[in-house]
């Protein structure tokens, strides 16, 4: 039991962060507004959770221009993907 708890990642304890990571696991990249629509959260809320995932090096962002407006899209890093899978496995063990 203790082993399993150690594998659970604090970064994914929060629902919004979990949602961001889930979307980035199955998509190459997702832009800010799509994430916002998908998860139904406010700009500020989403931005702060994105920032915290960035700090853990789980996601990276890319800025480019779309119709003269900046468009920020996010993708999961290999480290982030690995951490997410580890977290999922831990949940699975916990629920057994």
């Amino acid at each position: 039991m203790k082993e399993v708890l150690k594998d659970l990642d604090k970064a994914f304890e929060n629902r919004t962060r979990l949602g961001i990571m889930s979307a980035l696991m199955v998509n190459e990249a997702v832009d800010f507004n799509s994430l916002k629509d998908l998860l139904g959260v406010t700009d500020g809320n989403l931005a702060s959770h994105l920032k915290s995932l960035e700090k853990s090096n789980y996601i990276i962002y890319k800025k480019d221009f779309l119709d003269r407006k900046t468009n920020t899209s996010y993708s999961a890093t290999p480290k982030g993907k690995k951490a997410f899978i580890k977290h999922l496995n831990a949940i699975e063990k916990l629920l057994k």
């Binding site: 979990l18 949602g19 889930s22 979307a23 199955v26």
Partner: peptide, 13 residues
């Protein structure tokens, strides 16, 4: 959490 993961993955693809 698992439900949420599944739903987000489905809705985003």
């Amino acid at each position: 959490d698992l439900k949420e993961i599944k739903e987000v993955m489905n809705r985003s693809t």
